[in-house]
Structure formats: structure tokens, C-alpha cells
Amino acid sequence: MHPITLLLIFVATTIVGYLIIKTVPPLLHTPLMSGMNALSGITVLGALTAVGLTFLAATGGELLLGQILGGVAVIAATVNIVGGFGVTHRMLKMFDKKKKETKS
């Protein structure tokens, strides 16, 4: 894809994201942040592509580096994703639980 296209996509999502996130009340800022945090683990896509492609195509030092650096990156990003969504879910459950209790 052309660099300009990528830059445009970046700008567009930043603006749209900004507008949508503005609607989140301060009450939910911590879950929002940890949710966003989990999303930043999306970088796993780049890492796993590197691991996969080197595994299938590269040899020697390149294979080794691809597996080590890429592997560490995949692990780190996956921890980021799973941990991030996990704690966000736990926090949101706490908020939601309260709602039901007050109604009962």
C-alpha cells in the first residue's frame, strides 16, 4: 500500500477515534484506558507476520533473529492484549454489578 494511503488512514482513524472517545465519561476513564492499552497490543500483527514469514522462508541467522526478536515481540504483545482486555473486563464487571444491586 502506498505510504500516503497509510498516512491518510492514520490521520483519519485518529480524528474519528478522538471524536468517539470524547463521549466516554470520566467515570469510565480507567477501563477506557486499559481497553485502549489492550488494543495497542495490535502490534502483534506485525510481530507474528515477521515470525511466520521468517519461519517459512528465511534461513540461518535471519531465521534465528526473526524467531527470537519476533517471538519476544509476539509474547509481549499477546500479554498486553490478554492482560489488558482481562483487567478491563474485570473492572467493567465491577461497575455493572453495582447497577444491578442498586436496582434490586
Binding site: I9, Y18, M36, I42, L45, T49, A50
Partner: peptide, 16 residues
């Protein structure tokens, strides 16, 4: 690495 999804979601997180 020319990854469309990574660019768009990264942008959203950056904005937030």
C-alpha cells in the same frame, strides 16, 4: 511493515 489494521487501530489508541 505495511499493515493496514495496525495503522488504523494504532491511530485510534493514540487519539484516546
Amino acid at each position: 511493515v505495511n499493515d493496514l489494521l495496525l495503522v488504523s487501530v494504532g491511530g485510534i489508541v493514540g487519539a484516546s
